[in-house]
Structures are given as C-alpha cells and as structure tokens.
C-alpha cells in the first residue's frame, strides 16, 4: 500500500462519518437552486402575452385557474421537501450510541436523497403546469362575442343575450351568455312585445 492508497482510504473512512453533512449541504444547494428557479418564473411574465383571461370562454378561464392552483401546490410541495431535506424532517432524539447514530445517519442520508429527487420532480411538474397555463392564456381565441346582444320583452318577462331562430315559431335567448350558468330560453314569437339590440346585458 503506497501513501496515496493510505490517503484515499483515510479520506473514504472520514467521508463515512461526514456523509450526513455532505447530504445536508447538497440539499441546501438544491433548496437554493429550486427557490431560484421558481423565482425565475417571475421573469417569464416580463415577456408576457395576454394577462387578462376574462375575454376567454368561461371553461378556459376555469382550466387556467385549475392549472395555476395545481402548479402552486406542486411548487409549495417541492420547496417544503427541499427544506425538509436540508434541515431535517423531524426533531428526533435518538439514544446516543454508535449503533443508533449509524442507523439514524444511514436512514437520514437515504431520506435526503429521496426527498431531493422528489422536490426536483415536483418543481418540474409545477413549472410545466405554469407554462401550460400561460400558453393557454396567450394562444386561446377570445370567446365568441360577434353575435349582437338582444333584449327580448315578452309576456312572461324580459330576457337578454344572443338570439337564435332555430325552432320555428320561437326565439331562443341565451341569458347570462359566457358564464358557466348560461341558459337558453325559448320564447314563442307571438308572445314577444319588443326585440331590440343593446350594447350589453345585465
């Protein structure tokens, strides 16, 4: 055994005792990196397209909101996993003997590795969902608003919205047009007393 062999063997032996500190430092670096990557998302918004989703169809608005909520939850999960890996998940007290410390250290090193891997996956998932939400907002066509809004007064009351004449003898009025609860009302033509175009419906 030459002096290099002895030195490497000594370094390997020391590393066995320091492996948790090494794993913690790696986790801290990952935690800082993931936090930085998440902060970078803010930069994306500088090169933004549409930032008002109210012009989109209601189901696209809900889809974007769903994507952003899941993305936010994914990123929070990733950050907590990275924090737990860097700082320790629980405040455990063990019997301070060599065997107990060794078993705890080996388990903790395994856990740090697993949690950092999971944190990376959650971060990638969160960023992918945000990208999907942004692309949906930027690239989706606006909701159909070319049909004029009509106010229809009839015997039973008043309805307002785009109208259709698909059924003979009836006028179809889509009230609360564009909202998730829009309803189409069929009014007999002979019951209509007034039909006029309005700029918007209440």
């Amino acid at each position: 055994m030459n002096s290099d062999d002895r030195r490497w063997a000594e370094r390997a032996r020391e590393l066995g005792f320091n492996q948790l500190e090494v794993a913690r430092r790696q986790a801290e670096a990952w935690r800082n990196g993931l936090t930085g990557v998440t902060a970078l998302l803010g930069t994306v918004f500088i090169v933004k397209g549409r930032d008002d989703v109210t012009e989109l169809a209601w189901w696209l608005q809900w889809w974007i909101a769903f994507l952003l909520v899941v993305a936010f939850a994914s990123l929070i999960r990733a950050i907590f996993l990275a924090l737990g890996a860097a700082a320790g998940e629980t405040n455990e007290r063990i019997l301070l003997t060599g065997e107990d410390l060794r078993e705890w250290t080996e388990g903790e090193v395994d856990r740090v590795g697993r949690d950092i891997g999971a944190a990376k996956r959650w971060t990638i998932a969160g960023m992918a969902l945000i990208a999907m939400a942004l692309l949906t907002a930027w690239l989706s066509p606006t909701a159909e608003t070319t049909r004029p809004m009509m106010r229809v007064d009839f015997e039973g009351g008043v309805a307002c919205g785009p109208v259709t004449f698909e059924r003979a003898g009836y006028i179809g009025v889509t009230s609360k047009y564009g909202s998730p609860v829009d309803t189409k009302l069929w009014v007999p033509v002979d019951k209509v007393s007034l039909l006029r175009e309005v700029p918007s419906c209440p």
């Binding site: 998940e89 063990i94 003997t97």
Partner: peptide, 10 residues
C-alpha cells in the same frame, strides 16, 4: 447513555 439530537436544523 442519553437521548440527544443527532443533527436536526429545522
């Protein structure tokens, strides 16, 4: 032999 904290920073 006591119980102790082996390396928690949380």
């Amino acid at each position: 032999w006591h119980f102790g904290n082996p390396g928690y920073k949380g």
